[in-house]
Design a binder for these strands. Structure first.
Length: 554
RNA sequence: GCCCUCGUAGCUCAGACGGAUAGAGCAAGAGACUUCUAAUCUCUAGGUCGCAGGUUCGAAUCCUGCCGGGGGCGCCA
């Protein structure tokens, strides 16, 4: 019996009990939850329903819990129902009822854990969006890992996710990048506000090599244009390649330029003027963003006539809406949090539902060495890149360590530590569980043991405490995935996998699966093989949501 | 000054919607492999959940005020 089924049973039972006593059942909450108590003495599952309902129903919580217990205890699936503390109801399930979770896993396989929370919802997920003025650094790496995992989690809830990378090729940052390239190619010093690092020299020389003519001999304007087009292209290719190698691929690379060139920006500006949400003052055009929740009004068209950065974003939002996205997610670093209300205000001014724009703010990644913070500087070239990280620890460990913490907390990456103690990354703990399970199935196969169909197995034999723990942990997976999607917090999946791996390792320690010397596997062996396969499947499903591999051997 | 965010074990961090004795990994100490992968397991030690109030049957969680760290408050992008 799955937690969801149990919760439903508790709810219907409560409804029956209440109406039998003449109490209005509207006091029952929409969704009843059962939770796994930390203390095993408190049963397999517990519910606080009686305490929640007691007050509005005008009942004593312990008395109400007692009625519920009496009714629930009559069910075959439930072996005991006890009232505890101020009104908790502690439940124990029959082994065969509980093992329905194993059947569920093995029936649904890769689909186990998936849900329909966002069925058919069209989601635009924008993340990384770093300008191609240099390699992806640590901060960008975090979004690359978390954003991709979030995309997978949302997809598992039925959403149609488009992963999108926006870059601002119309702005001053690119200009600085181009000037740095040109200066390097000419053997001049890099401008004060330019970019340093070896990659600048490499790209500059590649731009020169890409031409049959002498690009440096061209008139300055023409020359710069070549460096811009070719240099940005090369840089972007490199970014795409390192992201791809990191396991993160995008569906759309969106150029800010295209919004200006297509006239989309001008059109949006006109719309805003027509609707009165844009006004002229001090030589510039201002968005009445303060009327839509922002701190102040924002300049959209500067007094020199050039569009401000937000102009592109307004048009971009509009473009996303035109493409039919119902939810636009942005993942930004904490240094951009001031942008949130602006973006929502822009959406509202354009007549869109501001709730369809959701900005996820993640704290920054700090580089630490020997416990001391290290300042990263693009100009000085002391930047740790995605490629450095992958080279130091590999894709799986890098992705996992970036995903497993909440983005609300700033994480410290100590390169010395991470490269020396790679085995301490919990990803290996989880992967090892999967490898062990894979090995187990291989061994069974080589012994000629066929676990057969799960329906034929006697799962009621799985009565050991560790078996029960493992089964109940498997049963948690669907709601973990659901909450990860709902809260946009993929790290929950990682934490869950660590729990699951632990439950499995503990089971493995106590419960022998393959009995040596037994030519004919007993029914317990078969049942345990089914359980093991279910555990392996869920580990694989979870790792897949994180974009981390599930190795068959280690 | 205003806004966002964090503060939990020596370290790195979990604890969504208020629930029972606050957890994990690492680090420290002690144990467990002639048998399915010891990258594992078991045990010990380690805490005024930043501080102070408030809400209530019940607060790490919600509210208020302080303290401390990080970030942001441009006609930059």
């Amino acid at each position: 019996m799955t937690p969801a089924a149990l919760a439903e049973l508790v709810r219907t039972t409560a409804a029956d009990v209440l109406s039998a006593r003449g109490v209005d059942t509207s006091v029952l909450p929409e969704k009843v939850t059962v939770e796994r108590p930390r203390n095993p003495e408190h049963g397999d599952y517990a519910t606080n329903l009686a305490m929640q309902v007691a007050k509005p129903a005008g009942l004593n919580p312990r008395e109400l819990a007692g009625w519920l217990a009496e009714s629930l205890a009559q069910r075959d699936e439930i072996t005991s129902a006890e009232v505890a503390g101020p009104g908790f109801l502690n439940l124990r399930l029959a082994a065969d009822a509980q093992a329905a979770i194993v059947r569920d896993v093995l029936t649904r396989q890769a689909a186990f854990g998936a849900g329909e929370l966002y069925s058919g919802l069209r989601v635009n997920l924008e993340f990384v969006s770093a300008n191609p003025t240099g390699p992806i650094h640590l901060g960008g790496s975090r979004w690359a890992a978390v954003g991709d995992a979030l995309g997978r989690v949302l997809t598992a809830q039925g959403a149609e996710v488009t992963r999108e990378y926006y870059f601002n090729d119309a702005g001053a940052q690119i200009d600085r990048f181009v000037r740095s390239l040109v200066a390097t190619a000419l053997g001049e010093e890099i401008p004060e506000d330019g970019y340093g690092g070896e990659y600048i020299a490499e790209i500059a020389s590649e731009v020169v090599k890409s031409r049959s003519d002498d690009v440096l001999a061209l008139p300055a304007e023409e020359r710069d244009e070549v460096f811009r087009r070719v240099g940005v292209g090369l840089m972007f290719d490199e970014i795409k390649r390192s992201l791809h190698e990191f396991g993160t691929d995008f569906d759309v690379f969106f150029h800010e330029d295209s919004l200006h060139n297509s006239g989309a920006v001008a059109e949006c500006v006109q719309r805003l003027k027509d609707s009165g949400n844009l006004y002229h003052a001090e030589g510039a055009w201002w968005l009445r963003s303060s009327e839509f929740g922002d701190d102040k009004d924002r300049v959209v068209i500067k007094s020199d006539g050039a569009p401000a950065y937000i102009a592109g974003d307004i048009a971009y939002l509009r473009d996303k809406s035109d493409r039919g996205f119902q939810l636009c997610l942005y993942m930004l670093g904490a240094d951009h949090h001031g942008y949130v209300s602006r973006l929502k205000a822009a959406a509202a001014a354009m007549g869109q539902d501001p709730d369809s724009v959701e900005v996820l703010i993640g704290q920054l990644v700090n580089l630490v060495r020997h416990g001391e913070p290290v300042r990263m500087s693009k100009r000085a070239g002391t930047v740790v890149t995605l490629e450095d990280l992958v080279e130091a620890v590999g894709v799986d460990a890098a992705r996992y360590s970036l995903i497993r913490s909440s983005v609300d907390s700033a994480v410290d990456i100590d390169l010395d530590l991470i490269s020396k103690h790679t085995n301490e990354n919990p990803v290996f703990y989880v992967q090892y569980a999967h490898a062990r399970l894979s090995s187990l199935q291989r061994n069974a196969l080589s012994l000629g043991i066929d676990r057969g169909d799960v329906e034929a197995a006697d799962l009621a034999l799985l009565t050991h405490d560790r078996e029960g723990d493992l089964i109940r942990t498997l049963g948690e997976f669907p709601r973990v995935v659901r909450s990860a999607a709902e809260l946009r917090e993929p790290h929950r999946v990682a934490r869950y996998l660590e729990d699951l791996a632990s439950a499995y390792h503990r089971f493995y320690d106590s419960c022998r699966v393959l009995q040596p010397g037994d030519d004919q596997p007993g029914p317990l062996t078969i049942a345990r093989l089914q359980l093991c396969e279910a555990a392996r499947q869920v580990l694989a499903n979870g790792l897949s949501l994180l974009g981390v591999s599930a190795p068959e051997q280690m």
